[in-house]
Design a protein around this nucleic acid. Structure first.
Lengths: 205, 205, 205, 205
DNA sequence: TATGAATGAGAATTCATTCAT
DNA sequence: CATGAATGAATTCTCATTCAT
């Protein structure tokens, strides 16, 4: 039990420090101190900085995954509400992208992919791909239902993601600045709009 | 003469090292050595690591800017060729996004924006915004010509950019892996396709 | 145990190196090496060069204080021996002034007072003032006993100190050169002589 | 001419920088810049930092010497005014001791005597000894005139110097702090008083 | 197992000094 | 002569990592 708790405490301490400072600047000292344990304890649990980092990334990817899947699971594909639901889905996914956890992941893979290409795969496999596939599945359902005309649902899912997030990096300085709700919702709305215009079964909008 | 050359040599040495190692791991020693000068020479020219980094980012942004504007300048908006030209433009811009210079910029701003928020603005002002506006101008011309229906050209330009690049990070592991020409062109094509479907004046495709 | 020992070992190594080389030339490397520890150990115990220097100064002031107070405590102010005792006191205090510890202090405060005015106060409070006051107290006793005529004992104490030490800097090149016992005793004797002539209750000499 | 001027300009720039920063912290860059010349010019005139430092010390010793000799030369040894003149002499010499030039010398010899014992001799020969001897000569005249009873005039001169300066280091933090005229004159007065009591031909005071 | 103490390796930065012009 | 540019050497300081307890 204590062992499991220690691991969690250390991971919970590591993520924000890695996220804010980056891999190099993050010091084991700071992480251990924030977790309330001593440095050798970190080593006995994780083996070293690199492994701690990987586990931290994997852990954040897991959380990110769960949050995004949660948003997708709520998508309604009934005849009346599907468009409205797609806008809400866009908001949910965009919100995930601005979560500290996701901002952390984006920074880490950008910064460390050169040093450790594995983390890219880890995040792809644990977070990006499952979300894309879940989203693709939902879009396919809308296709089957005749609302959308979608040849390649996975590709469409990726395009949905980038359109929904198209404005956000610039507005939030890569997730480091807060943004008004109106600006946020407007930006997401525009992305979903374009997606709908491109994929609507009939020239709806 | 020597002065200008030294500066350039150092900047040319700094960009790939910062790009591959990240700010922290990049050592002035390595940069000086790659530039064929001694460490104090780097200091006398740039004052310190942080300033060198900023100048390196600004310099890369400039290069990125020029390359992208070059691609945009070639856009043809005549009646016959405009669609073909838009596909070519997509390829050109996507190619810019995979250039070492652009990969360097993306990694650096993602990784270092927390430590030094200014670099985000520098890149926005020097590279992102001018390109967006030039692209927006061209899209607006296509709108005026009656080919596209575009309410907000700047927004459309951003969406064009993200659609064209939607698949590339995943395919190239954030620009660190080579990719086949076919895969590259296919990915870009899909992005332009979706853009055209969303913005075409008549349901052309 | 180890902690206390390390501190002491480092302080004992630092004082002569600071004393011989001065603050700037003294290198943490040299101090660590002389103390038989590694550089980071010095940093973990003292935080940095400046703090180590201050602690070293304070430590030397403490030692200097104890040595000088020891010499003063032995002053006899009985009727028969008081003059002889005053000569011996002069020798004792002058001897303190030539101790490595005192030479170190004098050099450091002279050299570094501009950079760090606090060290002057530290030495005054920890070493100079207590000694002056102890000496003043003894001189006042000699005054009360009718041997000396002393209006301001603290001032007299300062004058006693400078008279006793008047010749020594020149003879010992500021404490860096050895000196014969005769020369030393003669120099001190002259200072005490003058003091006695100035303060004797009756024109004794 | 220009050569001579350059030397003077550099020496005039060097003294305050050495005095305020100490030998190690003083940078040739700063000295050259203050003198309005370039670094190699300093080297061509003085050969190196160490030599520049020595020349700077010798130069300051010369100035110190002249100032002190000037004060001594004014000593009146007529029957009526000699005591008053001795007080004025004390003030003059103490004033010299607080001059920037003298404070600089004191700091430099304290700080650098370990590294370069020659400078102690230079200052002794050029400044301390001539002043002591001039003062000794004047005191001897007062002895010959029957005002003072002085066995060893040089020793008496040294004692005069230390008594006159006894309080000043503590009051001025080794010359780094200003002091009120009253405090200054009082401190000097006390020193001369004690000197007079010790050396007066008759128990005058 | 958890820790206080210690360290080896490596980083940025500064500076006296020297050429080529 | 005077200088702008360049450098080799040295210094402070930090950090991941490991023992002895």
């Amino acid at each position: 039990m204590a062992l499991r708790d220690r691991r969690r405490e250390i991971l919970d301490a590591a993520a924000p420090i890695f996220g804010e400072e980056g891999y190099e600047r993050a010091s084991i000292d700071a992480i251990a101190s924030r977790a309330g344990v001593s440095k050798p304890t970190v080593y006995s649990h994780f083996g070293g900085k690199e492994q701690l980092f990987r586990e931290s990334v994997a852990d954040s990817a897991q959380q990110q995954n769960e949050a995004a899947l949660g948003a997708i699971a709520q998508l309604d594909y009934s005849a009346e509400g599907w468009q409205e639901a797609l806008y809400r889905l866009g908001l949910g996914l965009a919100d995930c992208s601005l979560s500290p956890c996701s901002v952390f992941l984006d920074r880490m893979i950008a910064a460390e992919v050169g040093r450790d290409p594995d983390i890219f795969d880890v995040v792809q496999v644990r977070a990006v791909r499952p979300v894309q596939e879940a989203l693709a599945g939902r879009l396919a359902m809308l296709g089957n239902a005749g609302f959308l005309r979608i040849a390649d649902p996975v590709k469409a899912a990726r395009q949905f993601m980038v359109l929904v997030n198209a404005e956000l990096p610039g507005l939030t300085v890569l997730g480091t600045q807060r943004i008004s709700t109106e600006a946020f919702e407007g930006a997401v709305h525009d992305g979903v709009d374009t997606f709908l215009r491109a994929y609507a079964a009939e020239p709806a909008i």
